[in-house]
């Protein structure tokens, strides 16, 4: 399992695809987390643990969404928190974590 993250439009998806041709990609995973946690009511860590078990070869691609002012709306706060909690689990499970800044990948794990 590999994780590619970055701010919006930082090139994490292009990099993930270039570095892992033919991989099992999960792009926009922050939206997958939003769906699972906010719409389906799953617990973010549990969701992430199960995902890791079921998709051990996944190439997970996500936006970093937690580095802004705490939102006024509770649902927005819950979204950022959920993405953080879930991606912590995925980062721990991944053998490699790459953060993309202006299209450049920085290997942080």
């Amino acid at each position: 399992m590999k994780l590619y993250i970055g701010g919006a439009y930082q090139g994490q998806e292009e990099l993930a695809r270039a570095e892992n041709p033919g991989g099992e990609y999960y792009p926009d995973f922050h939206e997958t987390i939003r769906h699972a946690v906010l719409l389906q009511g799953q617990e973010p860590r549990e969701f992430a643990r199960r995902f890791c078990e079921e998709h051990p070869r996944a190439i997970v691609i996500a936006n970093e969404v937690g580095a802004g002012v705490v939102p006024m709306e509770a649902a927005d706060r819950a979204f950022r928190e959920a993405v953080g909690r879930a991606l912590c689990i995925i980062a721990q499970q991944a053998e490699q974590v790459t953060r993309c800044v202006c299209g450049i990948g920085v290997r942080i794990k």
Partner: peptide, 10 residues
């Protein structure tokens, strides 16, 4: 430092 829910407290 770090964003929201990133595990900085832990």
């Amino acid at each position: 430092t770090g964003g929201s829910g990133c595990g900085k407290s832990t």
